[in-house]
Structures are given as structure tokens and as C-alpha cells.
Simulated assay, not measured.
Amino acid sequence: MIMDLFRSVQILHLTVEIDENSAYLDANKWQQLIICHMPNLRIFDIRYNIYLGSQYDDMTVKNIISQLKSKINQFESSFWIERQWFFSHNFYLTRYGNDAIFYSTNPYRRKHYTLYQSLGETTLLLKSESHLDSVRHVDIQSGQSIINGMSYFPNATELTFHDALSTTRASIVSILNRIISLKKLIQLAIECDRFSIQKVIKILCCAPNLNTIKLKSMLCYKKSNDYTSIKESNDF
């Protein structure tokens, strides 16, 4: 049988895009598959990007999230604990609709972490957030995610913006220091429009080890007095 070919598999890395009804979310099926056909599996490393849809009203979305949580909680049984396979999930909002992510944590520590506008609490199953120590690259998809977020990445050295943080009145430096150490920052990429040069200057002043910066575009200053005010600022 084809399934018998998997008996020698020791490492499984799986990244897929699915919906909330996918069989990939069935912990019991995974358990039977591993016991019967992958008895030598040591590493179970998954990442599910789950599309929840954009056409639903708020109540329907809440019901879908509740059902999805019930499926995800099945991965908390003794079968997974004994093998030291732990998982985390988050529900978030993108420009295309409501999405979720479900992924392995320790001991498969990821070096890239994306911050979205959350629809609910980020939940780490059966483990503390020590897995954030391994993150080297933080990708900010939503400014609201770091204004409201509590995650801190002590060893991050790369930062990417996909949102200009245009709605906040707080200092860009104080906001970023909530999630990373700017002194450790080596690479900065700005992949969004209308990210002002003033914010870039603020970051540069607090990131002495920054050696690479990538700019998609930035907000231009057409008035001469705007440019003069930048030159005369203490940061400049």
C-alpha cells in the first residue's frame, strides 16, 4: 500500500491554505494516521492559513470562529503532549477578509512572525510564549496589531512594515519598543505607501546597528516649510 511508504518518515513539514471545514483540522484523523502509518515520526511541523471568508456578518463569523476553536482544541490531548508537539492559533483581519492561522510552536521555533489585526485573543496551546525568542524577522501587517498587542520579540533584527501606522498619535519609537529592541535592528523594509520620512528618521535615530533599509515609497513633502521643519528638528 502507498500509505506503508510513510512508515520510515521521521520529519513532516506541512504548510497549506485551507478553509474551516478542511480535514487537516481533524486531530483524531491525524492521530490515527500517525499511529498506523507514521510510527517513527519525530517532528510534526504544520502551518495552516485558514480563510474564513469576507461575505459573512459578524454573528456568522463568531460562530465559525467558535467551531474552529473546538477543532483546534482537539490538539491538546495526551497524544500531542506526550510527543511534545505544541500549537498556537490566532484570528485576524486582512484586507481580503477574516482569516486564521494555526501552527506548530516548540520545538520548531520559527524565525519569521507576522502581526495582523486580531479578531480575538492569540492562543498558545499548552506552552508559554518562549517561542518568540527565536523570531528574527517581524512583519507588521497592521498597525493596530502592535498598538494593542502584547508580544515582544527580544532577538528580532529585521522589521518589515506593510502598514504606515497612520492612525496612531503615539511615538513610532515607543510603539516599536513594545515589540522589539530597536538597538538590535539590522534590516528595515517599508513595503507600504505613505510612510513618512519623519518616521524613518525617528527609527534611524534609535537603531544604531541598522545597516540595510528598503523603501517602497514614502510620503513626499511638497511644501518647502515641511522640508525645512524636518531639517531643523533635533532628530535630523
Rank of each mutant, 00 (worst) to 15 (best):
W30L: 09
I34E: 00
L25A: 05
V16T: 07
H37Y: 15
L14N: 06
I2S: 07
M1I: 11
Q10A: 07
A23Q: 11
N28L: 14
H13R: 11
D19H: 06
L5H: 01
I11M: 05
I2V: 13
E17W: 03
A23M: 09
T15D: 06
D4C: 06
I18C: 05
W30N: 10
S22E: 11
I11D: 09
D4A: 02
D4E: 09
R7C: 02
W30C: 10
V16F: 03
I35K: 15
S22D: 12
V16Q: 11
F6D: 00
I18W: 03
I18G: 02
E17K: 08
H37T: 14
A23F: 08
L25G: 02
V16W: 05
E20P: 04
N28G: 13
L14G: 01
L25Y: 03
S22Q: 10
R7T: 01
E17R: 13
D26Y: 09
H13Q: 07
F6N: 03
I35L: 15
H37L: 12
L12K: 00
W30K: 12
Q10C: 09
D19I: 04
E20A: 12
S22W: 08
L14E: 04
V9P: 00
I34M: 08
Q10K: 13
V9F: 02
T15M: 06
A27T: 05
H37P: 11
I11K: 08
Q32L: 14
D4P: 00
Q10F: 01
Q10P: 01
S22A: 14
Y24M: 09
Q32V: 10
T15R: 08
E20G: 06
Y24P: 00
I18D: 02
E17C: 06
D19S: 08
E20Y: 10
S8I: 09
S22K: 07
Q10S: 09
S8Q: 12
Q32A: 14
Q32S: 15
V16Y: 06
A23S: 12
S22N: 13
L12R: 00
Q32D: 15
D4G: 03
E17P: 00
